[in-house]
Amino acid sequence: MRPEEAPLGFDDFFRRYHRLVAAIGLRMLGRPSDVDDFVQDVFLEAHRGYAKIREPGAAKGWLRAIAVRVAIRRLRRRRLAAALGLDRPDPLETSPYAANQEQVVLLQQIYRALEHLPAKARVVWVLRVIEGEKLEDIATITGMGLSSVKRQLNTATEGLEGVLRE
């Protein structure tokens, strides 16, 4: 049995995947200040269903799907809050992460443009381009049909056209 397939208590499950969930949160949401709350939302949701997991080897994929769902929900809230005038853009400070100035600028451009995308399109794009997931896997993770995934990806690509052209 591989280590990730061994049954874990919830504390150890949290410890094992905290870093993974935090990284998903930062990539999806683009705001370091949102990551801690995102992590809590994901694990609170995971805790409700954790006892029902029969195959420990599937826990990581299951947790990623929860994280994606939570990210979509938070991005929708953010868009609505922005529409209500209650959300102030908090540009991603990329310099602590990027390896060089070109990457700093590139990430800033990308995450500024992502703010204008619908939640699902944004999440699908991040999964495809940054996480490098296959379309079929994105469909599984997000619970969308393959054609919906393609449509969302097109929406995102069109929305990011300006940045991608530069």
């Binding site: 905290h18 870093r19 935090a22 990284a23 949160g25 930062l26 990539r27 370091p32 990551v35 990329t94 992460y97 990027a98 390896a99 070109e102 990457q103 590139l106 990430l107 990308i110 991040v126 381009v129 940054i130 490098g132 991608l164």
Partner: peptide
């Protein structure tokens, strides 16, 4: 361009 974005994007991981 997408490859460069992917490379940069994967660096986005908070220090935990």
């Amino acid at each position: 361009p997408l490859r460069r974005i992917q490379e940069a994007g994967r660096l986005l991981a908070p220090p935990v």
